[in-house]
Simulated scan of single mutants.
Amino acid sequence: MNKQELINMIDYTLLKPVATKDDIKAFCNETIEHGFKAVFVNPYYVEYAHSILSPHRIKVGVPIGFSLGGATTHTKVEETKEAIKNGAEEIDMLINLGALKSKEFNVVRNDIVEVVRASEGLTTKVIIETALLTKEEKITASELIVEAGANFVKTSTGFNGGGATVEDVQLIRSVVGEDFGVKAAGGVRTYEDAANIVEAGANRIGTSGALAIISGNTSTASY
């Protein structure tokens, strides 16, 4: 995996609740400089980030139902619509964890279906927060996401403990098959982490540490 291939897989993120407008501007300038294809910012900053990045054909993505997933479906749908109106081109929604734990699988599926519908064909990823789930729940969640018509299963927010692991990525890939998206997020901090996660089956990486990742391990990276 060479440097450009890695850059093309990374969703560069700045989701800190205390991020300022100046932080977002600097973050967007880093994105332009290094050639990342997509960034993720909180809904409040979507329009601002889009105004900076759209001339460079860099997508702005947004988390929906972040970071707990417990919002109603109606709220997630309206949040999605507003984000798209403001320039969002990718949607990362958090699954309804309480409903999943309660085995209310129709609720979980419908929640995803409605956000996918509101996304109007944009790439939609669904975060399952692997650190909070049993193996069986990870399998069930992944199956529901495929059934609901989303595009990716995403491991984690990085805000609720744990993060992407090789084992979880391998498990998700085994459930969704070769052609479905798997996004690893949370805890991917080095080139080695990224390489291991990609080998395990991820085809997208979400990270706030993108600069460290792409500059690391030059002895084994084919730049």
Rank of each mutant, 00 (worst) to 15 (best):
N2E: 12
K3V: 08
L6H: 10
L6E: 05
I10N: 03
L14S: 12
L14V: 07
P17C: 08
I24N: 08
K25F: 15
A26Q: 13
H34A: 08
F36A: 03
V41Q: 12
N42R: 12
Y44L: 08
Y45D: 07
Y45I: 00
E47W: 12
E47H: 14
A49L: 10
S51I: 07
H56V: 00
H56Q: 05
I64R: 02
H74S: 10
T75S: 15
K76P: 03
A83V: 04
A83M: 07
I84L: 05
A88E: 01
E90K: 01
N96W: 04
N106P: 00
R109L: 11
V113Q: 14
V115D: 05
E120H: 13
T123Y: 13
T124Y: 01
A131K: 02
L132M: 10
K135G: 04
T140G: 03
T140S: 05
T140Y: 04
T140N: 05
E143N: 12
A148H: 07
T155I: 01
T155V: 00
S156E: 04
S156L: 02
N160M: 14
G161N: 06
A164Y: 03
A164Q: 06
A164R: 04
D168P: 06
E178A: 15
V182G: 03
A185D: 02
G187Y: 02
G187S: 00
E192Y: 12
A194K: 01
A195Y: 15
I197S: 03
N203Q: 12
R204A: 10
G216E: 02
N217R: 08
T218V: 07
T218F: 07
T220P: 00
T220I: 13
